[in-house]
Computed example of a mutant assay.
Amino acid sequence: MFLEIKALNFSYTEENILKRINLNVQKGELITLIGPNGSGKSTLLKCINNYLQINQGKIKIKNKEISEYTQRELAQIIAYVPQAAEDISKLNVFETVLMGRKPHSSWKASREDKKITAKVIGEMGLESIAFKNLNELSGGQRQKVFIARAAAQKAELILLDEPTNNLDLKHQLEIFNLIRKEVKNGKTAIVTMHDLSLVSRFSDRIIMLKNGKVFSDGNQNSLSAAKINSVYGVEVSLKEHNGKKIIIPEKVV
């Protein structure tokens, strides 16, 4: 088992945000976490990344508890793309992607680090903007750069918190295609999302969270109108197109 979560509880105050989460992840899966705001999706990613210290339970990666890894060791295994990226707008694209090499290098980037960075930029189709500052880029371009930084990190697990948030349809598809490409290249990805139709199209597994608990765990066929109604309080219609589900919101219930 690549990632194993057992009886995980987490709370910021007295009330648990995450409640007895149990989850097993195989290497090479693209898993999407869905659920309404406040259901614990982002919090779970931060716990897996050891950014938040869990109250109870265990998180193991490659049969070793995450608390037993050093910060550097964990950064060589996990790449995290937060929902709100840090302010590094003074850096250009190449410098930003190069930051992904920090867990593998000393205080100064090596020739190999720069070579890997240039290769990732090429693979991500970012050559034309490689020396532009981030504040010159669109939201979709910046998000591609942050995913490229995660790819340069050469981590086995990529955590992405709402990577398509506030992006237009074209950039949403581009971002998900990049994520799928990383998974095809042997990575494992856990993504939080709101667009259920995109989730159904791209995910290997869909995990629904409700009130800090796992409500459902399965492939796209597990995504039913009844479950969506129960979790989101919205009545929906489900249609199929090319074997994938399209979720059409009807009314609040």
Rank of each mutant, 00 (worst) to 15 (best):
Y69N: 07
Y69R: 09
T70W: 02
R72T: 10
E73Y: 09
E73R: 06
L74P: 10
A75P: 04
Y80E: 00
Y80I: 03
Y80L: 06
P82K: 13
A84K: 14
E86Q: 14
D87C: 03
D87M: 11
S89I: 12
K90M: 12
L91D: 04
E95W: 06
T96A: 09
L98K: 04
M99L: 15
R101M: 12
K102L: 09
H104Q: 07
K108G: 00
R111P: 01
A118M: 13
A118R: 14
K119C: 08
I121M: 05
G122Q: 08
M124N: 09
G125E: 10
G125R: 12
L126E: 02
E127V: 11
S128E: 15
A130D: 05
F131I: 00
K132Q: 14
N133M: 11
L134I: 14
L137R: 05
G139S: 09
G139L: 10
Q141K: 01
F146E: 04
A148T: 13
R149D: 06
A150I: 11
A150E: 11
A151D: 02
K154A: 12
A155N: 03
A155R: 01
I158E: 02
I158R: 03
I158H: 02
L159E: 08
L160Y: 01
P163V: 01
T164N: 06
T164S: 13
T164Q: 08
N166W: 00
L167T: 00
L167I: 01
K170V: 11
L173I: 15
E174P: 03
E174D: 15
N177S: 15
L178F: 10
I179H: 13
R180N: 14
K181M: 10
E182F: 04
E182K: 11
V183G: 01
K184Q: 12
V191M: 07
M193R: 02
M193D: 03
H194T: 01
S200G: 08
R201Y: 14
F202Y: 15
R205A: 04
I206T: 01
I207W: 02
N211R: 12
